[in-house]
Write a protein that binds this DNA or RNA. Sequence first.
DNA 1: TCAAAAGTGTTGTGTGTACACCCATGT
DNA 2: ACATGGGTGTACACACAACACTTTTGA
Lengths: 236, 236
Amino acid sequence: MSAIWQYPDFQSHSMTSDTETPLVTVDVVIFTILPDANGQNQLHVLLMQRNHPPYEAMWAVPGGFIHKGETLEHAAARYLKDETGVANIYLEQLSTFGAPERDPRARVITVSYFALIRSHELDTSASLKSKTVAWHPLPQLPDLAFDHKTIIEYAVQRLKRRLENSSIAFQLLPEKFTLTELQRVYELILDKELDKRNFRKKILSSGLLDDIGETKMEGFHRPAQLYVFRDKAIDL
Amino acid sequence: MSAIWQYPDFQSHSMTSDTETPLVTVDVVIFTILPDANGQNQLHVLLMQRNHPPYEAMWAVPGGFIHKGETLEHAAARYLKDETGVANIYLEQLSTFGAPERDPRARVITVSYFALIRSHELDTSASLKSKTVAWHPLPQLPDLAFDHKTIIEYAVQRLKRRLENSSIAFQLLPEKFTLTELQRVYELILDKELDKRNFRKKILSSGLLDDIGETKMEGFHRPAQLYVFRDKAIDL
DNA sequence: TCAAAAGTGTTGTGTGTACACCCATGT
DNA sequence: ACATGGGTGTACACACAACACTTTTGA
């Protein structure tokens, strides 16, 4: 199994019989906001149910091996597109997990990514191509394969941090949205209620939103102003 | 070269002839604070000069392949110890770099780490075991091999962020230090001058420091109070 | 007494937080 | 007219930034 002799270009002192030649995968934690079983919007993660060992019948985030000549980010985007039909969306590297026993079959190191998609852009035919792909609300995750529970927790933590320091929430909303819709996104992800007046003051004073003059009716009450994001640039 | 048949436990649909089986390395960006050629303290990075192709005679951060059964972090700590003789110090994963052509010999993916060491703990015999290991002041880096310039820039950026949100500066100072010494660390890393009164107010009000009642004389002027860090815990 | 770095407070400005009422709409 | 969520302003506490002089020491 030693791979040393396959790589003659490497110095023998750097690659020895003790050198590990692991497999490398990427895994993508894909978030979206959808109504849950009770009709309440919730943060959801896309999971796939495994149909073979190890961890058979448990759930895992999408991912797999990288292709020859492909960047890591490209591989992540590819798995994302395969399962959701969505391309060109927010994708960020999270961390690399490589505990020796995380896959019982072989030494496998995984580079994890997280992605945000707008639920209305979901290609339902893509996501339904297999009965074993499903959105799971974050508070109720099923049993997860490998170290995917750790990876998802890490992703949620990063998402919360990004929400507070960056304009990432836009990635979860349609082009036009109301301030209340935006506030709900923040509340769902941060898992706490926000004060309406303070929220609006802060968001509007940031200058990132444009009031487009249109309104949106929903129910028997005053219509809400619609806004768009002024700038598509994501800062750090 | 296809590695598919070496891994019979993997499904043939997940591992195909197009699957890349890259090599995996870790690289460690090691920072310390040392006087530079002019006797001024400066942030330095530990670099090794390569004595064989590719990038022969250029400089690179320490790193190499991981060993069988070893965690990624353990591998990073091992390369750190090999070059500096220092163990049990601050080590944090940065990011994983895997551009297809970053190593001309083969597909190599590297998991990068950054580390902070106290210069007075440096085992000079270890760091001098090879003439080709040297500390370089950050503003004047030599030509760097592979994508190591990118990796170091990424590390510096992370270090700055950590300095502002965490109590990481302690890792660069001896156990007992003066407030002025601490302020110099911040100024060097953030590359800007800080107001003495505001700095002391902020640091002291954080409650992280204990005044141990001792003083330190240096030069012909009033001695400075010495402090220690109350808590070794690193947050976030 | 001098040189050199240590040490110390106040004020203004901006940012986060707490909090309650009127507005516009369809039925 | 009423039920429903949309929309608005003020007051307080706290963090950050600007700024100058006195203290302690060895020579």
